[in-house]
Design a protein around this nucleic acid. Structure first.
Lengths: 139, 139
DNA sequence: TAATATAATGCAACATTGTTGCAAAATATT
DNA sequence: AATATTTTGCAACAATGTTGCATTATATTA
């Protein structure tokens, strides 16, 4: 699938800026999820810390990326698939965190199975985070 | 089930202190999960902020409480059940976060269904966080 | 039970993470 | 190209979490 960062920004009515292009490119290139710190270190001193925060916030609002609930409660982001639109995220796929190398994967093709909730509880979103050893670390 | 905080502390070879007793009591009494801030506000100026951090840390290490991965990546803790022992947590039950009142529940009797992972991935833990409206907020 | 050893607490200082206001710079619009 | 709009970087701040160390509380021993 061809993924043009500029097209994505335009589609979401965002002005095309260096930081937005480069940060979005990082997500496209990265197989796993990214934390704020990853982006900060990968971009060196190119962007201000605040700009990165604001860019991530904007991308989340527009449904370009989504946050991942992780076992260690650190904040990570990953690209949304087509099902995500502004204001409404459908993140029903499974996330995998490798205990060994720390990489977080979106397992797009594994979806969260239904569970039956107790009387009176209704669900709008389900996040399944699996921890263990990934492909690479199982050699 | 009878739950003695003092017994629990002794069983885990922890010295019996005011803060440990009171913080553990809060968990026993609370239906939902607690964040550091909840404990801080409930206990007033009785304990230092640092003591609360250290107590929570100790309880996690001993397998008395566990952290809950939440949709908003805030850190919350809940009592572990018997299956949790020092150094090894089995938190295979489902957590529920109410979007409306913010309460986090451990749904002890709902367990996480198996999912089939891609080739090469092995799992040691699964955390399922369901968001929606709880019992109370569905009036 | 009193004396000693051990462990936990509170305080201060610091580190990290995230937020806000505002002037300067970049992008978009005409 | 000129103007309007948006984004950026900086500074300052707020919240959250950590560390070292003297003091205090708990546990152990005689």
């Amino acid at each position: 699938m061809l993924y043009s960062t500029i097209e994505t920004l335009k589609k979401n009515q965002l002005s095309i800026t260096d930081s937005r292009k480069k940060i979005l490119e990082m997500f496209v290139r990265s197989k796993g999820a990214l934390a704020h710190a990853d982006i900060e270190s990968q971009s060196g001193t190119e962007f201000d810390r605040v700009t990165i925060y604001r860019t991530l916030q904007t991308f989340v609002e527009k449904g370009i990326i989504h946050t991942i609930p992780t076992a260690d409660n650190s904040v990570r982001y990953a690209l949304c698939k087509d099902a995500c639109t502004e204001g409404h995220h459908r993140d029903d796929h499974v996330h995998f965190m490798c205990d060994h190398c720390g990489t977080t994967y979106c397992l797009d093709h594994v979806h969260v199975p239904k569970v039956s909730l107790p009387e009176g509880f209704t669900s709008t979103q389900m996040d399944l985070v699996v921890s263990g050893k990934c492909m690479k670390c199982n050699h």
